[in-house]
């Protein structure tokens, strides 16, 4: 029974890891490529680590939960690296299939900085 559960977890994990890297090859532009590794691989490695935790808990006396640490760490850090990479990509102005939002955010920033400076001059006066 446990054997089947472990096999299932290991296979699912390996397949998701594979699909995540496949996305890296198949997708067309940088921003869509970001999606594959951040999502598919986190669950893939998560499944493998849970399988490892179950395997070692079953094999030796006592629980073996330290794999959970890597899982949690990956779940927290993968989005952060994705965010940084997206930011770097936007900063370098990489070509994108979607409309790049050059105009969308800076405009609003200008407005707020403008109102801020307005307020500041009002205070100065």
């Amino acid at each position: 029974m446990l054997d089947y559960l472990l096999s299932f977890l290991i296979l699912t994990g390996a397949i998701f890891t594979f699909v995540g890297s496949l996305g890296l090859v198949r997708l067309k532009d940088f921003y869509t490529r970001l999606h594959g590794p951040t999502k598919a691989t986190t669950l893939g490695v998560g499944c493998l680590l849970i399988a490892s935790a179950i395997y070692f808990s079953n094999r030796e006396a006592g629980m073996s939960l330290h794999e959970v640490l890597i899982t949690l760490f990956l779940f927290i850090t993968a989005p952060v690296s994705a965010h940084m990479l997206a930011k770097a990509g936007l900063h370098l102005g990489l070509p994108s299939l979607a409309k790049t939002p050059e105009e969308k955010i800076p405009e609003k920033d200008n407005e707020t900085t403008k109102t801020l400076t307005d307020k500041k001059t009002a205070v100065d006066q």
Binding site: S21, L34, P37, L92, L94
Partner: peptide, 11 residues
């Protein structure tokens, strides 16, 4: 591009 390579390293 360079971010592509960094993404590949991360993966």
């Amino acid at each position: 591009s360079v971010p592509d390579r960094i993404l590949a390293l991360d993966t």
